[in-house]
Design a protein around this nucleic acid. Structure first.
Length: 283
DNA sequence: ATCGCGACCTGGTTGC
DNA sequence: TGCAACCAGGTCGCGA
């Protein structure tokens, strides 16, 4: 995982210099790219923490200090590289480190730049801009009861709820579709109408999907072992729903369907995952 | 207050 | 062959 990789390879190191190769990833730092670089230089990284797709590296003081925060967006990576390694195609920010073994660089690489880097002031424990993000279900402190209760209080569709970061993090469009397929639930089923048992089982499937993806190195973010092709290993072998429009359902053989959802797509089996009455078109 | 939609981005793929 | 249109998707801000 990224966080573990960072823990191993950059904690204890001092940032000696920062090179911002593209301004967009630091857009959330109001003072600008040059100030961003200047603010970081000379500070020591003393931790590596994660919540959802956010990572942050507390600087100098683990509990009350500032922190370098990173959001990986959909295509972002944080890599640890030897200084001589060739620049990645989408290398955006380079942080030179001193004090880590052999000298290293921490690199922010991001094709689409939905994510980015910033500096959070005095929020090393949990930076304020991250504090609203829920834990992910793999986190030992994730509270199943709270999640179940909140889902069952909401009239929103269950897929939308799975993507709501204040409820649960770490679940994207693909994992949501896979977990819903396994749970045999249609994404538009309102949270209100689900039983506690259904929500708990769904949560179990979410965990399974995430664990399997991690085990296959699919979304392995280990700083030193990121596979260039992202999630291809996982995608190739294990997807039952995502991207399978028209192909037979792996459970019942019915052709899978695709539906528009939040400017993107949902994939599901119309037989195993029947749409709720509320979502069906009038004849 | 809550909910749902569209914008934000780049580059690989597809279609003419 | 070249070029334009399309698509992917986590999050945030806005309007209903």
């Amino acid at each position: 995982m990224v966080r573990a990789g960072l823990e191993r390879h950059v904690v204890g190191a001092t940032i000696t210099s920062v090179e911002v190769l593209h301004p967009r990833p630091v857009r959330r730092y109001d003072a600008g790219a040059a100030a961003f670089a200047e603010a970081l230089a000379g500070h020591r990284i003393v931790g590596a923490r994660r919540r959802g797709k956010y990572l942050w590296l507390p600087l100098d003081d683990l509990d009350t200090g500032d922190a370098l925060t990173a959001h990986l967006g959909m295509s972002g990576q944080l890599l640890v590289q030897p200084p001589g390694a060739p620049a990645e195609r989408h290398l955006r920010v380079r942080l030179s480190l001193d004090g880590a073994a052999e000298g290293r660089e921490l690199r922010f690489v991001d094709q689409r730049m939905f994510g980015g880097l910033s500096i959070s002031l005095g929020g090393a424990v949990v930076p304020p801009e991250i504090s609203h993000i829920a834990r992910d279900p793999i986190d030992p402190e994730f509270d199943d009861d709270v999640f179940v209760a909140r889902v069952r209080r909401s009239a929103s569709g269950i897929k939308r709820l799975l993507l709501t970061q204040t409820l649960i993090s770490g679940v994207g469009n693909i994992y949501a579709d896979e977990a819903l397929w396994r749970a045999q639930l249609h994404g538009e089923r309102p949270g209100l109408k689900l039983t506690a048992k259904q929500v708990r089982e769904l949560l179990g499937h979410v965990r399974d999907v995430m664990n399997e993806a991690l085990a296959q190195g699919g979304t392995s973010f280990d700083a030193l072992y990121v596979n260039v092709n992202g999630e291809s290993g996982y995608f190739d072998r294990s997807l039952h729903a995502y991207g399978r429009e028209g192909e037979p359902c792996d459970r019942c053989g019915t052709p899978m369907r695709r539906a528009a959802f939040m400017n993107r797509s949902s994939y599901f089996c119309p037989a195993c995952q029947p749409a709720p009455r509320s979502a069906r078109r009038a004849p």
